[in-house]
Simulated scan of single mutants.
Amino acid sequence: MKKSNIIPQCVEAYKTNITGYGHALEFLPGQSDDTAKAEWDIADIFMQTANLEESIEQLLSQLVEDLEHCGNAYIEVARGGGLPAIYRIPPEYMRCTAPLEKVEMRYQRLVHGKAEEFTQSKWVRRYAQKRGVSITWFREFGAPGEENEVIHLQLGNGTYGEPRWSGNSPGVIGSRKVGKLNLDYFDNGRMLAMILTVMNGELAPQSIEALKGAKGKKSQGGILYLEVQGYDKGTFGDEKEKTSIKLDKLNDLLQQDALFLEYNREKRKETRSAVDALSSKNKLGPNEPVTEYDINRWEQGIADAHAQISVLTADGSNLKTRMNTLESTLPDGFIRNNFNDDLATVDSIKVIRGYYNEAQSRMEV
């Protein structure tokens, strides 16, 4: 994926649009504070304490990135007193067995407004995390056992998932090779202004060395002089063949546009379509003469603007969430902080600013 010139930007847009707006709890249809207040409180605590090292948005963002990179994402569920904790497992270390064990799984479903428990047989897998020579085993989420559990998120229905862009992987690799080819062309390609050739003879040793070094940007605009030694002529070789000189101009052949530009454009479009990247279309004026290049440039500018708006909106949502959290830690918000301490137990107090609120019969400092 890192070899693509478009997929990383698309994945970043996914992360922003999916997790950048924060999270919010909602009651199921027919539920409210009157019927599910205790469950709401538990869910709220879980969302804040599921991972104490990272916020739930950061964790979900990493999982989205894993899912779009390789088609697989793994969540470790650790139980042991109180609410469970969840962690991301890097997908490159995970493997799974075939579904070889049949177990009785327990499920809870909301039926007619009441939570009911059901059991059902299921063939389950086991998961292994291998780092070096160390192997840690996990059980499938919900399966009975002593090991930690794993939730396997994947794109597709196979044993392992596949990224959305897997069908266009030849185009991704081809675009990468196009970029490398063009880079190598400027670093190592022959970019001489002309070549001077002497006919009916052999290249002198110094000319061979000069020819080997005549490449890359150091030779751009230069002239290559090839010196030859005429062949022997006559019975005793006391004469030399007459040599001739030929000039070939290389600019017309080599100083053209970069290679495979159209191929690169097409593969970029295909890859972007494969990962469902956001796009916008511009409405053109009726009398404005425009070219295809202008339209493509405007569309790209609009798409980039929408991406920036999404990022800024997500940042604003995060700031609002953090501000609400900060405000909720104060007894009475930012407007009034009420401290109901018994002044009889205070040895001394120094009032810097304050007044007596007659309406509330209290001193506000």
Rank of each mutant, 00 (worst) to 15 (best):
N5A: 01
I208N: 10
E147C: 06
A36K: 09
C70M: 15
L155V: 14
L110Y: 03
T35E: 01
R164C: 12
S166A: 13
A214N: 08
L183I: 02
I245L: 12
S273Q: 06
K180R: 10
G22H: 07
L254G: 00
I349H: 07
P29S: 06
Y160C: 10
L330I: 01
Q154T: 12
A143G: 05
Y263N: 04
E209Y: 03
Q62F: 14
I295E: 09
A43T: 05
I75G: 11
E202K: 12
S61V: 13
L196A: 07
E146N: 10
E146W: 02
A36G: 07
Y263S: 06
E364G: 04
E117C: 14
G81W: 14
T119A: 13
T291W: 01
S32E: 01
P144F: 01
G222V: 01
A258L: 13
L25F: 09
K180N: 09
P84S: 02
D41G: 05
F334R: 07
V228R: 12
G213L: 13
D66I: 15
R125L: 06
K240R: 11
K122Q: 10
E241Q: 10
E140W: 09
A210W: 06
L330E: 01
L250Y: 01
Y160I: 10
S317G: 11
L155A: 15
G216V: 09
M191H: 01
D41W: 05
N251C: 04
P205E: 04
V133Y: 07
D184Q: 00
K15N: 06
S219G: 00
Q360T: 14
L250C: 00
A143S: 08
F46M: 06
T321G: 14
L326D: 00
N318A: 15
R95E: 13
E209K: 08
E117H: 15
T345D: 12
M194D: 08
N251V: 15
W137P: 01
K212A: 05
A204L: 11
Q220P: 00
V351R: 02
E54L: 15
R362L: 12
D41I: 14
Q9E: 10
E116V: 13
N282F: 05
F141D: 05
L59V: 15
G333R: 06
K218T: 08
L83Y: 03
N148L: 06
P163M: 10
Q154G: 15
V311M: 09
E104V: 03
A258H: 08
V133R: 11
I89V: 15
A24E: 11
W40C: 02
S280P: 00
A210E: 08
K283R: 02
A36Y: 07
R139G: 12
P84F: 01
R362V: 11
N338E: 11
E241P: 03
A85H: 04
I151A: 05
L63M: 14
S280M: 06
V351K: 03
N340A: 11
Y127I: 07
A128C: 08
K217C: 06
K215E: 01
D276T: 04
P289A: 13
V228D: 07
N318L: 14
Q120S: 14
F260R: 00
K281T: 13
P289C: 04
A24F: 09
S134F: 06
G20C: 05
R131H: 06
L67S: 15
E227H: 00
E239S: 11
R88E: 10
E270N: 08
R131A: 03
L226P: 03
L312K: 03
D347Q: 13
G161H: 08
L343R: 11
Y93S: 10
Y87A: 09
I56C: 00
T345I: 10
